Amino acid sequence: MSATTLTSREFNQDTGRAKKAALDGPVFITDRGKPAHVLLSIEEYQRLTGQHRNIADLLAMPDLPDVDLEIPPRLERAKPVDLS
């Protein structure tokens, strides 16, 4: 695994190069000489986060239990705004 560093300008001008480099390791994208972002392959991201889902899983609505939520009414009134 090798890391690659690109400036923001290089990243914007050649995203294909960045995507290819991300297959071999993280791609650090700098802004004004300082690391600002990291580009990872989806496989590496899933490995790091422990998420192994596919796009269908992400788009599916989860089955959530019913939740009773009681929100009390607000009793205070809005104050008039002085626009003078």
Rank of each mutant, 00 (worst) to 15 (best):
P65A: 09
D82I: 11
S84Q: 07
Q46V: 01
A3K: 14
R9P: 00
L83T: 13
L40I: 00
P72W: 10
D31P: 02
L39A: 12
A36Q: 15
A78V: 12
T30L: 08
Q51L: 06
A3C: 12
L59S: 06
M61R: 06
L58N: 02
R53A: 14
R17C: 01
A21P: 01
L48C: 00
E43Y: 00
V67W: 02
A36R: 15
P26V: 14
G16A: 03
H37I: 02
E43Q: 08
E70L: 14
I42D: 09
G33W: 04
I29V: 14
D68M: 12
T30I: 05
G33D: 10
F28E: 09
K34Y: 03
P80R: 14
G16K: 09
F28W: 06
K20I: 09
D24R: 10
V67A: 10
D66A: 13
R32M: 09
P80W: 07
V67M: 14
A21R: 10
A18H: 06
K34R: 13
P72C: 11
I29G: 01
N12P: 00
A18W: 01
E43H: 07
L48E: 12
L58S: 02
D68K: 14
L40M: 07
L59F: 06
A78N: 11
V38C: 08
V27H: 00
M61V: 03
L83S: 09
D31I: 12
A78K: 13
